[in-house]
Amino acid sequence: MRLIVIKPKVEFVVTVEAELTPDLAEKDVEEVKKFKVYYGKDLVELGELFEVTKEGDDKKLLLDGDFSRVKWIGCRMSDGEIVVKGSVGANCGAYMAGGKIVIEGDADDWLGAEMEDGEIVVRGNAGNLVGCAYYGDATGMSGGKITIEGNAGNYIGEKMSGGEIEIKGNAGDFIGTEMKGGTIIIHGSCGFVGGDMKAGEIRIGGEFELVPTFAKTDDGWTGDVNVKGEGVVKRL
């Protein structure tokens, strides 16, 4: 096993769809360069768009540069580690089953969508739909942990059934919508919380708007009573 370093050769004019996982570190460099990715609508080899080198002996990818237009990084990964020295595009860590992703910049929408296990850490900000279910699917994140050290957008943890999302800054609206389990922790403020929430727990340090269909309890609120929910919302 070895550490693979991947660097963009150019500034991308369209998005790249590349399911880059630590499994690539078990291949030799020439194999990695031939790994197929989409550049817009065109199927190309990874080596056409990125420089690929090997260093060390860990099952690890080091993505060095701006990957903000690269989608599906870490999709379905089950072990190993990815470190991104920059920002990432949409769907990073989708369906993730294990391992760790560290993003030193920002993350686009759908971070950790439907992830089952593992850990994602974002040093910057994240977009919308963190830990959510894809449209038409019944269940979002079911396990693992996502930590966002900055702010995040709307629809955090929609339909999540397990795991933990922690946001150290602020978040947007519709937090925990249709949530079925797991924990969301927001240290800052956010908008509307808990719509159609059935189970799980949301803890908030700052200001927030609670949908009116929650009942007050000794240490917070429970609901959403419209769906006979037993979710818990409380202050940190």
Rank of each mutant, 00 (worst) to 15 (best):
R76A: 03
D66E: 10
V84K: 03
E30N: 14
S68E: 06
K59R: 15
W72T: 05
F67A: 09
E81W: 00
W72D: 14
L49P: 04
V32N: 08
G56I: 10
E51H: 09
F50L: 10
I73T: 03
C75W: 08
K36F: 00
W72R: 11
E31A: 14
F50V: 08
F35M: 06
D79S: 15
V44Y: 13
F50R: 08
K34R: 15
M77G: 04
G74A: 02
D57G: 06
S68Y: 07
L62N: 01
G56M: 06
Y39N: 14
E30Y: 12
L46W: 10
K33L: 04
F67Q: 08
L46C: 07
K59M: 12
K59A: 02
L62G: 00
G65I: 07
V52W: 08
F35I: 01
V83M: 06
K71M: 07
K60M: 14
L63Y: 03
I73E: 06
V37M: 04
S78T: 10
L62I: 15
V32E: 08
L46A: 07
V37H: 11
F35L: 09
K33W: 08
L63C: 02
D58T: 07
V44D: 13
G47E: 01
L46H: 11
K34G: 03
R69H: 07
T53P: 01
L46M: 13
G65N: 03
E81P: 00
V52R: 06
V84M: 02
E55F: 09
S68G: 05
V70F: 02
E30K: 11
E31N: 13
S78R: 13
V44P: 11
L63F: 05
G47M: 02
K33Q: 13
Y39A: 13
S68N: 12
D58G: 01
K34D: 13
K59P: 01
V44T: 13
I82H: 07
K60H: 02
L49K: 08
G47W: 01
E31V: 13
L61Y: 09
E31T: 15
E31G: 12
K36P: 00
I82P: 07
L46E: 12
I82C: 03
I73A: 06
D57L: 06
F50A: 09
E55C: 00
K71P: 00
D64G: 00
D42H: 03
Y39T: 10
F50K: 11
R76M: 05
L43C: 11
L46G: 09
